[in-house]
Amino acid sequence: MKMMQKLMLPCKAATGLMEKKHSGELSLLEKIQLHFHTKMCEACRRYEEQSKLIERWFKSREKAPVSPELEQPSEELEERILQRLDTQH
């Protein structure tokens, strides 16, 4: 029974371990605990899937289109930079 208690994490701790997992820093016990928890908890399985999606979206942002007016710098930015370069030297 003690063994079971040790293995059964609350959702708060389990979702926390998922973040640690991304960089492969889980101990063996933590791996077992997380595996055990996600097997039994639907909400945390869902969280893990969605968390992975968020990671993927974050990483694909380099190519993600934003609205045209934000995509472009102000028209005078180039001139401003050139002026600053001139005054600096």
Partner: peptide, 28 residues
């Protein structure tokens, strides 16, 4: 490259003014 650098900065900060400043600092 100003436009491309700006777009890259914007995607990593979501802040137009800040992105422009950072691109300027980059060239300086």
């Amino acid at each position: 490259y100003t436009k491309d650098l700006y777009a890259w900065a914007y995607r990593n900060t979501s802040d137009k003014e800040l992105s422009e400043d950072l691109v300027q600092e980059t060239f300086l």
